[in-house]
Computed example of a mutant assay.
Amino acid sequence: MNRSLWPSLLAPSPGDSKEFRPRNLRGLFFITKEIPVSYSPIFEKALRFAAIAHKNQSRKNSDLPYIYHPFAVSTILHHFKYPLEWRVAALLHDTIEDTDKTATDIEQNFGRHIMDLVIGCSEPEHNNASWEDRKKHTINFLTTADLPVKIIACADKIHNLHSILYDHNIAGDKVWLRFNRGKQAQKWYHENLLTSLFLNVKNPQNHKIFTEYETLISQIFK
Protein backbone atom coordinates (compact mmCIF):
# COMPACT_ATOMS: atom_id res chain seq x y z
CA MET A 1 0.00 0.00 0.00
CA ASN A 2 1.20 3.49 -0.78
CA ARG A 3 1.30 4.87 2.76
CA SER A 4 2.53 8.25 1.55
CA LEU A 5 -0.97 8.84 0.18
CA TRP A 6 -2.67 8.67 3.55
CA PRO A 7 -0.42 9.68 6.48
CA SER A 8 -2.90 12.15 7.91
CA LEU A 9 -5.67 9.54 7.79
CA LEU A 10 -3.62 6.81 9.45
CA ALA A 11 -2.13 8.57 12.46
CA PRO A 12 -3.80 10.46 15.33
CA SER A 13 -3.35 14.19 15.53
CA PRO A 14 -0.62 15.45 17.87
CA GLY A 15 -2.05 15.56 21.36
CA ASP A 16 -4.80 13.03 20.68
CA SER A 17 -5.44 10.75 23.62
CA LYS A 18 -6.33 7.09 23.27
CA GLU A 19 -9.98 7.84 23.90
CA PHE A 20 -12.33 7.98 20.95
CA ARG A 21 -12.54 11.34 19.24
CA PRO A 22 -14.35 12.28 16.03
CA ARG A 23 -12.13 12.49 12.98
CA ASN A 24 -11.20 16.01 11.94
CA LEU A 25 -10.77 17.43 8.45
CA ARG A 26 -6.99 17.10 8.26
CA GLY A 27 -7.25 14.17 5.88
CA LEU A 28 -9.44 16.14 3.51
CA PHE A 29 -7.02 19.07 3.46
CA PHE A 30 -4.10 16.70 2.92
CA ILE A 31 -5.51 14.92 -0.09
CA THR A 32 -6.62 18.13 -1.75
CA LYS A 33 -3.13 19.58 -1.29
CA GLU A 34 -1.17 16.53 -2.42
CA ILE A 35 -3.51 15.28 -5.15
CA PRO A 36 -5.12 18.37 -6.68
CA VAL A 37 -8.34 17.61 -8.52
CA SER A 38 -8.25 19.21 -11.95
CA TYR A 39 -10.94 21.85 -12.18
CA SER A 40 -13.85 21.30 -14.52
CA PRO A 41 -17.32 22.84 -14.52
CA ILE A 42 -19.08 19.47 -14.19
CA PHE A 43 -16.92 18.48 -11.21
CA GLU A 44 -17.67 21.80 -9.52
CA LYS A 45 -21.37 21.39 -10.26
CA ALA A 46 -21.41 17.86 -8.85
CA LEU A 47 -19.49 18.90 -5.73
CA ARG A 48 -21.99 21.68 -5.03
CA PHE A 49 -24.95 19.41 -5.82
CA ALA A 50 -23.68 16.73 -3.41
CA ALA A 51 -22.75 19.26 -0.71
CA ILE A 52 -26.28 20.68 -0.73
CA ALA A 53 -27.90 17.24 -0.87
CA HIS A 54 -25.89 16.05 2.15
CA LYS A 55 -25.86 19.40 3.98
CA ASN A 56 -27.66 18.16 7.10
CA GLN A 57 -25.80 14.87 7.31
CA SER A 58 -22.58 13.82 9.01
CA ARG A 59 -20.40 10.74 8.94
CA LYS A 60 -21.39 7.97 11.34
CA ASN A 61 -20.39 8.73 14.94
CA SER A 62 -18.56 11.92 14.05
CA ASP A 63 -19.18 15.60 13.48
CA LEU A 64 -17.64 15.51 10.01
CA PRO A 65 -19.86 16.92 7.25
CA TYR A 66 -20.93 13.99 5.10
CA ILE A 67 -19.57 15.58 1.92
CA TYR A 68 -16.11 14.69 3.24
CA HIS A 69 -16.75 11.07 2.27
CA PRO A 70 -17.86 11.37 -1.39
CA PHE A 71 -15.14 13.96 -1.96
CA ALA A 72 -12.54 11.54 -0.59
CA VAL A 73 -13.92 8.72 -2.77
CA SER A 74 -13.66 10.94 -5.84
CA THR A 75 -10.11 11.92 -4.90
CA ILE A 76 -9.09 8.27 -4.60
CA LEU A 77 -10.30 7.74 -8.17
CA HIS A 78 -8.31 10.78 -9.25
CA HIS A 79 -5.20 9.32 -7.63
CA PHE A 80 -5.62 6.11 -9.62
CA LYS A 81 -6.22 8.14 -12.80
CA TYR A 82 -9.80 7.12 -13.54
CA PRO A 83 -11.97 9.25 -15.87
CA LEU A 84 -13.66 12.48 -14.87
CA GLU A 85 -17.15 11.02 -15.31
CA TRP A 86 -16.36 8.30 -12.77
CA ARG A 87 -15.09 10.90 -10.31
CA VAL A 88 -18.25 12.95 -10.79
CA ALA A 89 -20.37 9.85 -10.14
CA ALA A 90 -18.31 9.22 -7.01
CA LEU A 91 -19.23 12.67 -5.69
CA LEU A 92 -22.87 11.78 -6.23
CA HIS A 93 -22.76 8.11 -5.30
CA ASP A 94 -24.80 8.41 -2.07
CA THR A 95 -27.28 11.06 -3.16
CA ILE A 96 -30.00 8.70 -4.40
CA GLU A 97 -29.57 6.26 -1.52
CA ASP A 98 -29.20 8.71 1.36
CA THR A 99 -30.87 12.00 0.36
CA ASP A 100 -34.11 13.17 -1.22
CA LYS A 101 -32.47 13.44 -4.64
CA THR A 102 -33.78 11.10 -7.33
CA ALA A 103 -32.36 9.42 -10.39
CA THR A 104 -34.27 11.96 -12.45
CA ASP A 105 -32.50 14.80 -10.62
CA ILE A 106 -29.14 13.23 -11.48
CA GLU A 107 -30.07 12.70 -15.12
CA GLN A 108 -31.38 16.23 -15.57
CA ASN A 109 -28.23 17.75 -14.10
CA PHE A 110 -25.50 15.36 -15.24
CA GLY A 111 -26.84 13.15 -18.01
CA ARG A 112 -27.94 9.56 -18.34
CA HIS A 113 -24.50 7.93 -18.14
CA ILE A 114 -23.64 9.45 -14.77
CA MET A 115 -27.16 8.69 -13.56
CA ASP A 116 -26.63 5.02 -14.46
CA LEU A 117 -23.35 4.97 -12.53
CA VAL A 118 -24.95 6.51 -9.45
CA ILE A 119 -27.86 4.05 -9.60
CA GLY A 120 -25.32 1.22 -9.84
CA CYS A 121 -23.64 2.48 -6.67
CA SER A 122 -26.92 2.81 -4.75
CA GLU A 123 -28.17 0.09 -2.45
CA PRO A 124 -31.87 -0.51 -3.19
CA GLU A 125 -34.49 -0.38 -0.48
CA HIS A 126 -34.77 -3.73 1.26
CA ASN A 127 -37.58 -2.92 3.68
CA ASN A 128 -36.88 -5.14 6.69
CA ALA A 129 -34.02 -7.15 5.20
CA SER A 130 -31.26 -8.09 7.62
CA TRP A 131 -27.75 -6.62 7.45
CA GLU A 132 -26.49 -9.96 6.14
CA ASP A 133 -29.07 -10.11 3.35
CA ARG A 134 -28.35 -6.53 2.28
CA LYS A 135 -24.63 -7.18 2.14
CA LYS A 136 -25.13 -10.44 0.24
CA HIS A 137 -27.18 -8.50 -2.30
CA THR A 138 -24.35 -5.97 -2.73
CA ILE A 139 -21.77 -8.73 -3.13
CA ASN A 140 -23.87 -10.56 -5.72
CA PHE A 141 -24.70 -7.38 -7.62
CA LEU A 142 -21.07 -6.27 -7.88
CA THR A 143 -20.05 -9.65 -9.29
CA THR A 144 -21.59 -8.71 -12.65
CA ALA A 145 -21.59 -4.91 -12.38
CA ASP A 146 -19.95 -2.76 -15.03
CA LEU A 147 -16.32 -1.85 -14.42
CA PRO A 148 -16.96 1.83 -13.50
CA VAL A 149 -19.43 0.78 -10.80
CA LYS A 150 -16.95 -1.78 -9.43
CA ILE A 151 -14.20 0.83 -9.31
CA ILE A 152 -16.35 3.46 -7.58
CA ALA A 153 -17.56 0.86 -5.08
CA CYS A 154 -13.96 -0.13 -4.41
CA ALA A 155 -12.93 3.48 -3.77
CA ASP A 156 -15.93 3.86 -1.45
CA LYS A 157 -14.84 0.87 0.61
CA ILE A 158 -11.21 2.02 0.62
CA HIS A 159 -12.18 5.30 2.22
CA ASN A 160 -14.43 3.53 4.73
CA LEU A 161 -11.54 1.28 5.75
CA HIS A 162 -9.10 4.19 5.98
CA SER A 163 -11.59 5.89 8.30
CA ILE A 164 -11.79 2.75 10.43
CA LEU A 165 -8.00 2.50 10.53
CA TYR A 166 -7.66 6.13 11.58
CA ASP A 167 -10.20 5.71 14.37
CA HIS A 168 -8.70 2.38 15.44
CA ASN A 169 -5.35 4.08 15.96
CA ILE A 170 -7.10 6.33 18.48
CA ALA A 171 -9.80 4.17 20.06
CA GLY A 172 -8.60 0.62 19.51
CA ASP A 173 -11.20 -2.13 19.19
CA LYS A 174 -13.91 0.17 20.56
CA VAL A 175 -14.23 1.39 16.98
CA TRP A 176 -16.19 -1.76 16.09
CA LEU A 177 -18.95 -0.87 18.55
CA ARG A 178 -20.28 1.79 16.19
CA PHE A 179 -21.25 -0.77 13.53
CA ASN A 180 -24.39 -2.88 13.25
CA ARG A 181 -22.13 -5.93 13.09
CA GLY A 182 -18.75 -6.54 14.67
CA LYS A 183 -15.25 -7.07 13.34
CA GLN A 184 -15.69 -10.65 12.13
CA ALA A 185 -18.85 -9.82 10.19
CA GLN A 186 -17.13 -6.81 8.64
CA LYS A 187 -14.20 -9.05 7.70
CA TRP A 188 -16.55 -11.49 5.99
CA TYR A 189 -18.19 -8.64 4.08
CA HIS A 190 -15.03 -6.97 2.81
CA GLU A 191 -13.29 -10.21 1.85
CA ASN A 192 -16.28 -11.40 -0.16
CA LEU A 193 -16.81 -7.98 -1.68
CA LEU A 194 -13.20 -7.94 -2.87
CA THR A 195 -13.74 -11.31 -4.56
CA SER A 196 -16.85 -10.01 -6.30
CA LEU A 197 -14.95 -6.97 -7.58
CA PHE A 198 -12.30 -9.17 -9.18
CA LEU A 199 -14.81 -11.42 -10.94
CA ASN A 200 -15.61 -10.69 -14.59
CA VAL A 201 -12.92 -8.01 -14.86
CA LYS A 202 -10.38 -8.43 -17.63
CA ASN A 203 -6.86 -8.28 -16.18
CA PRO A 204 -7.92 -7.16 -12.67
CA GLN A 205 -4.25 -7.03 -11.68
CA ASN A 206 -3.95 -3.91 -13.84
CA HIS A 207 -6.27 -2.05 -11.48
CA LYS A 208 -4.04 -1.05 -8.58
CA ILE A 209 -7.06 0.22 -6.69
CA PHE A 210 -8.00 -3.43 -6.05
CA THR A 211 -4.56 -4.03 -4.56
CA GLU A 212 -5.02 -1.04 -2.27
CA TYR A 213 -8.32 -2.47 -1.04
CA GLU A 214 -6.85 -5.95 -0.56
CA THR A 215 -3.92 -4.54 1.43
CA LEU A 216 -6.23 -2.57 3.71
CA ILE A 217 -8.38 -5.64 4.38
CA SER A 218 -5.29 -7.63 5.35
CA GLN A 219 -4.02 -4.83 7.57
CA ILE A 220 -7.26 -4.16 9.42
CA PHE A 221 -8.55 -7.71 9.80
CA LYS A 222 -5.24 -9.49 10.47
Rank of each mutant, 00 (worst) to 15 (best):
G111Q: 08
K18N: 13
L47K: 06
I31N: 03
L161S: 06
N200W: 12
I42Y: 01
D173N: 15
L117I: 04
K45S: 05
D63M: 10
P22L: 05
H137N: 13
I158W: 05
A129L: 14
I67K: 00
I35N: 11
I106L: 12
S58E: 08
M115R: 13
I119Q: 14
L177E: 14
S17M: 03
Y189L: 15
L77N: 03
S130R: 13
D173F: 09
D116I: 03
D156K: 10
H159G: 00
L197W: 10
E107C: 12
G120K: 04
H168I: 08
E191I: 11
H78T: 02
P204K: 07
K222T: 05
W176A: 12
E212F: 10
T143N: 13
F30L: 08
A46K: 00
N24A: 07
Q219M: 07
D98K: 15
I52D: 08
I31W: 04
L5V: 14
K208R: 14
I164Q: 08
T32H: 13
P22H: 06
R178N: 14
V37W: 01
T99W: 14
D98P: 00
H54E: 07
V37L: 06
T143W: 09
R23E: 07
I152Y: 01
S4A: 12
F49A: 05
I217E: 02
K101D: 04
D167K: 09
S196I: 13
T75L: 12
E107S: 13
Y82R: 05
F141P: 09
H168K: 14
K174R: 13
L194T: 06
A90G: 03
Y39M: 02
W188H: 15
D105M: 07
R23V: 05
S13P: 08
E214M: 08
E34S: 11
P36I: 00
A11F: 09
T215S: 11
I52M: 07
L91Y: 00
H93W: 04
N206P: 10
I119F: 10
Y68R: 03
K187L: 13
W188Y: 15
V73C: 07
R134N: 12
S8A: 11
T99Q: 08
Y213I: 03
N128T: 12
P83N: 02
L177R: 12
L25M: 06
E212L: 11
S40H: 01
A155Y: 01
E212I: 07
V149R: 02
K55A: 05
L161H: 06
N24C: 05
Y213A: 01
S218I: 04
V175G: 06
P12V: 01
T102M: 09
D146F: 08
C154L: 03
H207V: 06
